[in-house]
Simulated scan of single mutants.
Amino acid sequence: MRVFVLCTGRSGSLSFVNACKHIRNFTTSHESLADVFGNERFNFPNNHIEVDNRLSWSLGHLNKYFGDDAIYIHLKRDRDKTANSFFQRFYLPGSIIDAFCDGVRMNPVEKLSKKMRLKACYDYVDTVNTNIEYFLLDKSKKMTINLETIEQDFPKFLEFINADIDLEKGIEELRKSHNSSFQRKLNLDYRVKLTIIREWRHLKMYFSKKS
C-alpha cells in the first residue's frame, strides 16, 4: 500500500514526515522524487508514505499509476496562515510561489507589488487545494488532516493506514517547528551562479537561431 500526502506546502508537511518516520511498517519520504523526470517520478516503493506538495501538479499521473489503489491524505492549514507563509518565500532558490507567478500566471515576481504578491499567494493556495479536492472526489481511501487539529487527526490517520508506531514519539515531532519561512539563507554564490548560467544559455540559444 502506498500513501500520498497531498498539500499546498507551508502546511506542516515536514513535521508530518518526521512524525511518520517513527512508523515501523511504512517507509516515509519528503519530496524524494521531486527532481526526477518521466515515469521514474512515480517509482515509489510499496508500503511507503510520500509527502510531496509538488504532486498536486501531477494528479493525472497519480491517477494513472495508482488510481483508487492508494491512500490519499489532504494535509491542510488555515488559508490565511498558508498564504502569508508563502509570502515569505519569494525570491528563494526553487521557490514554488516564484515558479507559480513567473511560469503559470506569467507575472514575473519582480513586477508585482506587495499587494499583488499576497494576492498571488492566495491564488496559489486556492488553486492547489481545489485541484486536490477534485482529484479526491472519486477516491475511496482518503482523509483530510488539518494542521490546526493535527494532534487529534494524526492518531486517526495512523489507525486509517494501520500503522505500527511509537505514538508518543510521533506526536513529539508534530510539536516541533520545521522549515520556518523566516529561516532564510542568502545562498548568494549559488544564486549568482544560476543567473550567469541561465543568461549564458539564453544567449547561446538566441545566437544559434540567428546563425
Rank of each mutant, 00 (worst) to 15 (best):
R2S: 06
V3M: 10
V5L: 11
T8Y: 13
T8G: 12
T8H: 12
S13A: 00
S13W: 10
L14S: 14
S15D: 01
F16L: 15
V17Y: 14
A19M: 05
A19C: 10
E40G: 04
F42G: 04
N43H: 01
F44G: 00
P45H: 02
P45Q: 05
N46K: 05
N47K: 04
H48G: 01
I49E: 09
D52F: 02
R54D: 14
R54P: 15
W57L: 08
H61R: 13
L62F: 00
Y65F: 07
F66I: 00
D68S: 13
D68K: 14
A70T: 03
R77W: 08
R77P: 09
D78C: 11
R79H: 03
D80Q: 08
A83K: 01
N84F: 08
S85D: 01
F87H: 10
Q88D: 11
L92A: 08
P93I: 00
I96Y: 11
I97V: 08
A99E: 13
D102T: 12
G103K: 13
L112N: 03
K115Y: 15
L118T: 04
K119R: 12
D123M: 02
Y124V: 12
Y124N: 10
N131E: 13
N131L: 15
I132M: 00
I132Y: 01
K139Q: 07
S140C: 07
K141H: 15
K142A: 10
I145H: 03
L158N: 12
F160C: 10
F160A: 09
N162Y: 04
E168N: 13
G170M: 05
G170F: 09
E173N: 12
K176M: 04
S177E: 14
S181I: 09
Q183T: 08
K185T: 11
L186H: 06
L186R: 08
L186W: 12
R191P: 11
K193F: 08
L194S: 00
T195W: 01
I196H: 00
I197D: 11
R198A: 04
R198I: 02
R198N: 10
W200L: 15
R201M: 06
Y206F: 14
K209V: 03
K209F: 10
